[in-house]
Amino acid sequence: MSISKKIVLLGHFGVGKSSLIRRFVENTFSDDYKVTIGVHILKKSVQIDGTDLSMIIWDIEGNEKVQKTRNSYLMGTAGYIYVFDASRPSTYESINEDLTYLKGLLPNVPMHLVGNKVDLIDLPELKKILTKKNIDCKYFASAKTGDNVETIFESLGKQLI
């Protein structure tokens, strides 16, 4: 059986949304920063438990405020990934607020919170900070090293079928 599902990546400017997708879809990485304008759509097919899942991935432009995201980009999404930059506290300071907002907008839609760029930081240190801020984050990745990227997309995929 084969199915197609829409997935959206959200988060502040430059947290590495496009890089994570590029790592997942093409297994490449670049240090150049090319700002995404509007939305860019990529696709990757994966086999999960005998099902062919086409992930139609919407790479949305970054926003200082998640409230500013165009609703139409979120419409009809089967799941989403909220990305923050582990090396820049400003990108995760208001995470709980942002996630509450998104949950209100997309009730019952599977979500993964991902801290990216872990190659730049001391992970145990970050986890401490996050706990202090009451931020519950299970996924940490690096688009640069490829660490955890596939796992994250596939575990979200599992929740979609």
């Binding site: 139609i56 419409m75 009809g76």
Partner: peptide, 23 residues
Amino acid sequence: KGSGIIKASLTKDNTIDHDMIAG
């Protein structure tokens, strides 16, 4: 609508990925 997922297609030339076009 919304998701941009293709429900059916009729196509002569297979140049670009249809799912991406539809999205």
